[in-house]
Design a protein around this nucleic acid. Structure first.
Length: 723
DNA sequence: AAAAAAT
């Protein structure tokens, strides 16, 4: 304690090691010497009626005790303080008979000498003062310090440290960021800012093409997530103070209530929509039809044609369709139609779309957003890895439709930020995945929170055992629609099962991935994704890893780079197996065979989308051959395992003859960092604060090169035998 | 068995 306080004192020159008492004495004397002297003089006059004269000789005589005691006593007091009167306890004792004083002295003085001084030096000032061994002058001195220590220094600590933190951190950030920018800006200014602008526009155009022609007013867009996300997020992130947005009295952006928009005043002019538009025939609102027609969506996919009428009729629908078959619109349009009328209360959304991964949530959100807009339906992406504030605020403002991953939505419900009691229509996308063991509890939890009489739509590429449980529990008289699995996908998709030698796995993977066009390489584990991506880059193939162990910012960035073509090869775990839609993925390489036939179908579904062509190549180690054959049968895939070595004709055929350069490549530089974080430029948010120091980890170009070179031999060696 | 999903 004592030492601690000492350390916090202002240091003056004499106190080099902080231990010496002299500076402290000096300090006290400097501060209060005059006062203390005056006070003592007064006290002396008042409290020393006897007016005893004190000097050594007189005291010795008066006490008359044996020198060993009396002298010690007097030494500790009067020798230091010449001619001070003895008062209080000592004064009484001074007048007592000598015999009375002796036992006291025998007990106390040795204790004083042995114990007190050391104790005083360390921590024991209160005891020292309590015993009142000393005379008044010494007591006041020592009494002062504890008081000072107790009262002043704690206060000093409380006040100072917060102040220190507030001042210091901004200073740190200010110092740090300029340094960071100084290094990076020259690089970014030349290369990345132009790239960034181009990329950004390309991206926004990419996902929802319609946004460009969106009829939403500019200022509406300005009020949209992107700018305000950045403005809001950074302060909140820095403060790490959630109370600010939890508070209800926090000013909300001015915005008319959603339901008061002039929904009925919008022109019903269908513009260039053909009179025989099939969506209109299905009962889709003219505004939606028009909006989709603007994007060239005029003919419903089979799954849409099958499910939309029933869904519009309010029935529970069980939809089965291959990924890429248009399920999103299949449930999205009826959902929007339903939510277009009615009123949403604060925190009580009326629609909920559950999806298994964040990427999928973003994708669905982007696909539905322009359509929701023309219907004046508000929607909000509720997913992990994104900042809470905007999600909570949107809920409080009242949002019609949530597109959510289960974890975050449950979290928000537990916080009281969301109440699913008003959900009229609940959608489960990728239901078979949502019914996996790990997801099941979350899904049932959420569905349990919705009113049982609400409409439920369940969409999935595969409908099997697990889904049944959900269907039986939560769907009433569901209408099942299966678009035939045998449609477009199979005819435009080739399947190859390559039996390879373990030592060739790495080079064959690189050979396959070095082809022109986008390629997804699936691996079994996160670590494997990092490792294979690194190996591919080492061999000259621009590849990036995507898996759930990356920060959300890294995930977004990697996906963006894959979409914009700067990274043509994505090495992914099964996080990307389902639902992720990227155009023109011409080849899916399964560097590790899937665990089960469903996974095979999902992975394969990443290619040959929307009627395009695609190939699925599965690399099999000899011992994986039999299992894969069984799996292919279950999946309805007709393919014979073929032994392949590097350079074989089949390889050339699959890759178009391109070979990896053999020269290591580096990932493209991250997008320019806005406000120093995340960097993705994706509107949803950029990071999940969980994996180490985010700023550092997600900004460097070595970002996804995860596993170390030393691991690379394991990929080709025996380590590949996983089953 | 892995991965995903909340901090």
């Amino acid at each position: 304690m004592t030492q601690h306080h000492q350390d916090n004192q202002p240091v003056d020159g004499n106190q080099a090691d902080g231990r010496g008492k002299k500076p402290r004495h000096k300090k006290f004397q400097n501060q209060s010497f005059g006062e203390r002297m005056a006070a003592e003089a007064q006290a002396e006059a008042a409290a020393a009626p006897a007016g005893e004269v004190r000097n050594d000789a007189a005291r010795g005589e008066r006490r008359g005790g044996p020198t060993q005691y009396s002298d010690r006593g007097s030494r500790t007091t009067d020798d230091r303080r010449d001619n001070r009167p003895v008062k209080g306890y000592r004064a009484e004792r001074a007048n007592e008979p000598r015999t009375d004083r002796r036992p006291v002295n025998r007990d106390d003085r040795p204790q004083y000498n042995r114990d007190d001084r050391p104790q005083y030096n360390r921590d024991e000032r209160p005891q020292y003062g309590d015993r009142t061994r000393t005379d008044r002058g010494e007591r006041t001195q020592y009494g002062d310090r504890p008081q000072y220590n107790r009262g002043e220094r704690p206060q000093y600590n409380r006040d100072e440290r917060p102040q220190y933190n507030r001042d210091e951190r901004p200073q740190y950030n200010r110092d740090d960021r300029p340094q960071y920018r100084r290094d990076d800006r020259p690089q970014f200014n030349r290369d990345d800012r132009p790239q960034f602008n181009r990329d950004d526009r390309a991206r926004t155009g990419d996902r929802p093409r319609f946004e460009r022609t969106d009829d939403r007013a500019r200022d509406d867009r300005a009020r949209d997530d992107r700018p305000s996300y950045r403005r809001d997020d950074r302060p909140q992130y820095d403060r790490s103070d959630r109370s600010s947005y939890r508070r209800d009295d926090k000013p909300v952006r001015e915005r008319a209530p959603y339901q008061e928009n002039k929904r009925d005043e919008q022109p019903e002019d269908l513009g260039n929509v053909a009179p025989d538009n099939q969506f209109a025939a299905l009962g889709i609102a003219p505004r939606l039809v028009q909006r989709m027609a603007r994007d060239g969506i005029t003919a419903p996919f089979p799954i849409q044609a099958a499910t939309i009428p029933d869904a519009l009729a309010g029935k529970d629908v069980l939809g089965r369709g291959q990924t890429g078959s248009g399920k999103t619109l299949g449930f999205g349009l009826p959902t929007l139609m339903r939510l277009a009328s009615g009123r949403t209360e604060s925190r009580r959304p009326r629609g909920m779309i559950l999806v298994p991964t964040r990427e999928l949530a973003m994708q669905v959100h982007d696909a539905l957003e322009p359509l929701a807009h023309v219907m004046n339906v508000s929607l909000k992406l509720i997913a992990g890895g994104l900042p809470y504030p905007k999600q909570i605020e949107a809920l409080r403002r009242g949002v019609d439709l949530l597109i959510a991953t289960p974890g975050r939505l449950i979290d928000l419900c537990e916080q009281g930020a969301a109440d699913l009691g008003a959900v009229e229509i609940a959608v489960l996308d990728e239901a078979d995945h949502m019914c996996d063991m790990g997801f099941m509890p979350a899904v049932t939890t959420l569905l349990d929170m919705t009113p049982p009489e609400g409409q439920r739509l369940l969409f999935s590429a595969t409908l099997d055992n697990d889904v049944d449980t959900i269907v039986k529990t939560y769907l009433k008289d569901p209408v099942t629609h299966s678009t035939e699995s045998g449609q477009a996908t199979v005819t435009t998709m080739e399947h190859h099962l390559l039996v390879i030698e373990p030592a060739h796995k790495q080079s064959l993977t690189a050979e396959l991935a070095s082809r022109d066009g986008r390629t997804i390489v699936f691996v079994r584990t996160k670590l494997g994704a990092d490792r294979v991506a690194t190996q591919l880059r080492d061999r000259g193939v621009m590849a990036a890893a995507l898996h759930g162990g990356l920060t959300q910012g890294a995930r977004n960035r990697t996906l963006d780079q894959f979409k914009d073509g700067s990274v043509p090869v994505l090495v992914a775990t099964d996080v990307a197996a389902r639902g992720i839609h990227v155009d023109d993925v011409g080849l899916v390489v399964q560097a590790d065979p899937p665990a089960e036939h469903k996974d095979y179908l999902h992975r394969a579904g990443r290619t040959a989308r929307a009627g395009g062509k695609g190939a699925v190549v599965t690399l099999l180690l000899p011992h994986q051959r039999r299992g894969m054959i069984r799996m292919a049968e279950s999946a309805g895939v007709e393919a014979e395992p073929v032994r392949v070595r590097p350079g074989d004709n089949l390889m050339t055929e699959l890759t178009g003859g391109t070979k990896p350069s053999g020269y290591p490549v580096k990932l493209p530089a991250p997008k320019p960092q806005r406000f120093g974080k995340g960097g993705g430029g994706k509107r949803y948010g950029s990071s999940r604060p969980g994996r180490g120091h985010d700023g550092r980890g997600s900004s460097g170009p070595r970002r996804s090169s995860g596993p170390r070179r030393t691991d690379s031999n394991r990929y080709e060696g025996g380590k590949s035998y996983q089953r």
